[in-house]
Amino acid sequence: MALTLEEVQKVAHLARLTLAPDELIIMQGQLSGILDYISMLNELELADVPPTTQVTDLHNVLRADTVRPSLPRDDVLANAPQQQDGMFRVKAIFDENA
């Protein structure tokens, strides 16, 4: 199944990946090839087959609702590219003028 360049761009946007124009074209070819291969699954009649979402057969795993210490804030912030006043620093998400 061949993907269009527009579809590849849309997926890159959904995945929040900046891809260079030439990489979009390479990706278009490679993804189309892989999807072609994957289409072999269409050979199978699956109407009565339930999906397997996980293989543990465990359901509704619960734990006691007890308080336990979390990681110290400084340890967690130590890996942040930008921090300020004991918090992660990010660029504004909302445009105040919009």
């Binding site: 699954l41 269409n42 199978l44 699956l46 087959v49 339930p50 999906p51 397997t52 979402t53």
Partner: peptide, 9 residues
């Protein structure tokens, strides 16, 4: 979903 069904098989 299709892949998960084949996973069952």
């Amino acid at each position: 979903k299709r892949a998960q069904q084949v996973r069952t098989l």
